[in-house]
């Protein structure tokens, strides 16, 4: 399966899914006007990957600056697919990155952790500005 790579824009995140390494990353901003249009191909790719994955270690890094509430629903959908992937015998870890003082972003990650049966790791990132 080929990697999925989507370059970032002001409103959409970098998507970098490398299936052979089990390393997936979504980072940057996510506030497209139409989240369905942006996330549908991402979900389709992930579903295909999970249908094939066997005994694989998978790490998904979320490293957002901003995301809107419609993207929030798709983030949950991505996590649900990963949860199914784990039920099929794969080992999945979600790493949720946030700036130290950004309690809203931290709480958003905690809400996901509470809504889904996946291992979460919270990573505090340095403010580079």
């Amino acid at each position: 399966m080929n990697p999925l790579r989507i370059a970032p824009t002001d409103e959409t995140p970098t998507v970098n899914f490398i299936p052979d390494e089990g390393k997936f990353e979504i980072s940057g901003n996510s506030y497209p006007e139409n989240s369905t249009k942006f996330y549908s191909p991402v979900l389709d790719w992930l579903r295909r990957f999970c249908a094939e994955a066997k005994n694989q270690k998978i790490t998904l890094d979320f490293n957002f600056d901003y995301f809107n509430t419609s993207s929030a629903k798709y983030i949950l959908e991505i996590l649900r697919i990963l949860q199914d992937c784990q039920k099929n015998g794969n080992e999945c870890l979600v790493r949720w990155h946030y700036l130290e003082e950004d309690t809203d972003m931290q709480e958003a990650g905690e809400d996901y952790r509470d809504s889904i049966d996946l291992n979460f790791e919270f990573v505090v990132r340095e403010d580079t500005l």
């Binding site: 509430t69 949950l76 959908e77 809504s115």
Partner: peptide, 23 residues
Amino acid sequence: FYKERLTDGKISAKGGGGLGLLN
């Protein structure tokens, strides 16, 4: 209520998630 709406899977035809006012 936010969590309930977040997990209901509903997205409008225009791509909105129905969570804006709640946020």
